[in-house]
């Protein structure tokens, strides 16, 4: 082992402190607030910890915390439905993404080498243009008076305007659209690194292109597919913008629930409880994602 200069040990300190203060600590505070109750005060929750009250004050503070908000979440079917709906919409959207994104990533990886960076840039550019605005554009396309209906009616395929906007279908379209680069790029990266001679060997042994794809290409790329799928699924569960702009009153997602509890009902403690619930739901997939990433890194070596 080369002797490690002391300087190297200091490197993580600053980011560690920053992230500890502005990421870890806030999550802990959210947990605390979720155990509080709303109040018409500034800040709008009780109890408020006053450090100056000493140990007795702190004990009193701890006593005032309770799980009332979690009981609300458990008892009110709204939250249960929202959680299930979030999970199922995210799962379906991820599935659609896998089906739609895999052929695209595969096609990109098979493109001539000079063209590939251009294709990658073309995939990245929409990602870097305003997410909000691109979803807003889908409103113009999907609404009954929008382009999709008008186009289909002009072509004679339908005779009435389509009611897509405000339904789960619209949310699925929006989610698929929004997260497509997040699936395509990691998958493409893995596919592009694969040794083309493996495909050639399979073909030489008599496998048709379809069989080569299913038995060689796809299994080799499964790390990229899993990584991409998780990279999409996890944030999708808590997605707010897509269901808010494209969905209707029947598309319940936890992101929207949290938002309305916070901004409309001004019930900070309940919103915090929803946040913790959301966190618990995604922690599992996050751990799986980290494991998959580590394994992918080792497989690459």
């Amino acid at each position: 082992m080369t002797p490690r200069p002391r300087l190297l040990r200091l490197l993580p300190v600053l980011p560690f402190l920053w992230l500890g203060a502005f990421f870890l600590l806030p999550v802990l505070i959210t947990l605390k607030i979720s155990l509080s109750e709303p109040a018409t005060a500034q800040p709008p929750y009780l109890p408020v910890l006053d450090w100056s009250t000493g140990p007795q004050g702190w004990a009193h503070f701890l006593e005032a915390l309770d799980f009332a908000n979690y009981e609300t979440l458990a008892n009110d079917s709204l939250y249960r439905d929202a959680a299930l709906s979030s999970l199922s919409l995210a799962a379906v959207a991820t599935l659609i993404l896998a089906l739609v994104g895999t052929p695209i990533a595969h096609a990109m990886a098979r493109a001539p080498a000079k063209v590939q960076p251009v294709l990658v840039a073309l995939v990245i550019v929409p990602f870097w243009t305003s997410f909000l605005i691109r979803i807003y554009a889908w409103i113009a396309i999907l609404k009954p008076e929008g382009l999709l209906s008008a186009g289909l009616m002009r072509l004679g395929l339908v005779d009435r305007p389509l009611e897509i906007l405000g339904t789960q279908a619209a949310v699925l379209v929006g989610l698929t659209y929004a997260y497509l680069p997040f699936l395509v790029l990691p998958l493409y990266a893995v596919m592009a690194k694969a040794d083309p001679r493996l495909r050639e060997a399979a073909a030489d042994l008599g496998a048709s292109p379809t069989r080569v794809f299913w038995t060689v290409t796809l299994p080799l790329a499964r790390h990229g597919l899993v990584a991409g799928a998780l990279l999409c699924f996890i944030p999708m569960v808590g997605e707010f913008i897509v269901p808010d702009l494209l969905g209707g009153s029947d598309t319940l997602m936890l992101g929207r629930v949290l938002w309305s509890e916070f901004f409309s009902n001004r019930d900070w403690p309940l919103a915090s409880a929803v946040a913790i619930l959301l966190l618990v739901i995604v922690v599992g997939p996050i751990v799986v994602f980290r494991e998959a990433e580590t394994r992918r890194g080792e497989a690459a070596r």
């Binding site: 990421f23 600590l25 808590g238 966190l279």
Partner: peptide, 16 residues
């Protein structure tokens, strides 16, 4: 923070 749903991060930071 890269995968965490933004609503959680936003709320948590505000509470901080």
């Amino acid at each position: 923070p890269m995968v965490m749903p933004e609503v959680i991060a936003g709320l948590a930071l505000l509470l901080l």
